[in-house]
Design a binder for these strands. Structure first.
Lengths: 334, 334
DNA sequence: CTGAAAGCGCTAACAC
DNA sequence: GTGTTAGCGCTTTCAG
């Protein structure tokens, strides 16, 4: 910039002003500056700019695993909407590790990001909570209900309980009564809520949950769904339908069913959760509860920007719904 | 920091030195600084630090679409190895748009990232080339051969031609002679190379590529594989095997075959490319050419750091191999 | 309409 | 062993 100023025969301040269009500069001077910028291939140093302005146009996205198709989708959308706002995104994977959560939170703070989208997904909020006590940078938390800790942080939720309820009802409406559930890991907030929805539906319908039908899994990956389904099928009275707390496990489960010589949906029906892209290309195509990932991204960013613009604003809380996408893994009503 | 210094009764320089452990500070003074930091919950401002040191500990990752499972995997691994080095990653999706490529390249430059990993994947290198003329920031280019433009930039390649060759040979070794190919988009460097490998194998074997067997697709997504497979099956002499230039299209293709009442692999065999996580959970499990994504990430970052440490170093060029993962989508040798 | 100067928070060179 | 000072590249008063 100094060079540009010299070459254009103006002050640095003037250069800054034409670059940022922040005050009128004579046509003539402007042109000289522009020419000098062109000639020297000048690019502003955003680092210096950020330091001076106290704004980095950067936000941090913290999630468990960006290779998980569901999170990948969320991340993709967040990046896309940030792009529209001239913001960049630092991506942070926690692997579900509380230490990483806290570390990344603090790294992002050190880096002076303008805001953080936190999708830690675990029930345990202690790392987050500890952080919140030390910093009031704008942050929105997705898919973890903060009411428990009475926090005043914007909170974006999906009604997982309702989603699971709908999924279970769907299975019942198709004639199933022996409905099992792949529960996901106990430390997942979403999983817990979905299990709750499953239980509620079963109870309302008047169905009992047979012993062993509600089966916890160590994680959300296909192998876990595979193993759990095998266990279910080994039961004296195996289920005729399975509600899986996410698509990945449902896909693993369908694979297990197939391996056991069962047909999906005739012998065993599946409903998943998330509606990852590939769910429409499994065999059979997976019926699932679609998460509004695009909306989530848009609203999360919007909530964050509201906070950035006006930190005094009362924190918004938003609850989105999942909707049922009927495909082929449950069969048709007979 | 000023506050910490005041509270500890030392100079700012001293605080800096204990924070960075960059010179001896008396036990006593150190302790006072540490206490003050603790008391004031001090976190260094990385922005200021970066500006002063001329180093941001940030790299940019540019790729087409982080929601694509293959790219998601690469991104995940890159982030993981950067984490080990105390680096952060700004994620940029180009959507295959040359304008975005150039825009992001320049944004990253403005942000003074220490380096860039560029996985643009398109044959057209003009945006990149234009950028390289204006900036010599360390950058490594993945999966696009730079020899053509005689560039002196580190270059990490996968031998796509060989991979496709192996895949095609595998199909032939299983008794297939009518082998078609889902070619991917014409602007994809990897796709072009894979098609080349397919052609080479066919030629060496002495097989002719029936008219219509080499079928271009608009993109790499499942629907494209689905549509293309339908086209192939509508041919007077449909193929008995399909080499798909990526897994996603193979998955779409298997879905199409199923929809047409064909059995995979008995009626139609498939080989994919990438070995995305879900390939082991399709029905049937997909035989595919596995890409060494973990190695790619590690080597790419390593190459980048070499460059960052010593910009004079001659640019390395590294060529990795894909390997065949035999699963169930091709059947067994009869 | 434009320039001078201060300062964002930090580190590195130079003093003592 | 520690303090002082300059300055990274930018923006923003404050003067004129």
């Amino acid at each position: 910039m100094r060079d540009v100023a010299r070459q254009a025969g103006v002050s640095v301040a003037t250069v800054s002003h034409v670059v940022n269009n922040t005050r009128f500069v004579s046509e003539e001077a402007s042109q000289r500056v522009l020419d000098a910028m062109e000639a020297l291939d000048y690019r502003s140093n955003e680092l210096a700019r950020s330091l001076r302005r106290g704004q980095t146009n950067t936000i941090g996205l913290i999630l468990i695993d960006s290779a998980n198709p569901y999170f990948a989708m969320v991340g993709r959308h967040v990046e896309a909407v940030l792009y529209e706002h001239n913001y960049n995104m630092i991506l942070c994977n926690t692997e579900g590790d509380p230490n990483r959560e806290e570390l990344y939170l603090n790294v992002l703070r050190s880096r002076q990001v303008d805001g953080i989208i936190f999708y830690g997904a675990r029930t345990d909020l202690s790392a987050l909570q500890r952080y919140l006590q030390t910093d009031d940078r704008p942050i929105v938390v997705i898919d973890q209900d903060l009411s428990a800790i009475g926090s005043s942080v914007p909170n974006l939720l999906v009604d997982n309980q309702q989603g699971a309820y709908i999924a279970t009802q769907h299975l019942y409406s198709l004639g199933h009564e022996r409905i099992a559930c792949l529960a996901g890991p106990a430390n997942s907030f979403a999983a817990l809520e979905r299990v709750r929805g499953y239980k509620k539906a079963m109870e309302e319908i008047g169905l009992v949950i047979t012993d062993g039908y509600l089966i916890p899994t160590p994680d959300f990956h296909p192998p876990s769904g595979y193993d759990a389904t095998l266990e279910l099928l080994a039961l004296p009275q195996p289920p005729t339908a399975i509600f899986s707390c996410n698509d990945l496990m449902a896909i693993g489960g369908m694979s297990a069913a197939h391996q056991q010589g069962l047909r999906v949906p005739q012998d065993l029906a599946f409903v998943g959760y998330d509606d990852i892209r590939l769910s429409s290309y499994t065999l059979p195509r997976l019926t699932t509860m679609a998460q509004p990932t695009r909306d989530m991204a848009e609203i999360a960013v919007e909530m964050l920007f509201e906070r950035i613009k006006n930190p005094q604003l009362p924190p918004r809380k938003e609850i989105l719904s999942s909707h049922l996408v009927v495909r082929d893994s449950c069969g048709a009503k007979s």
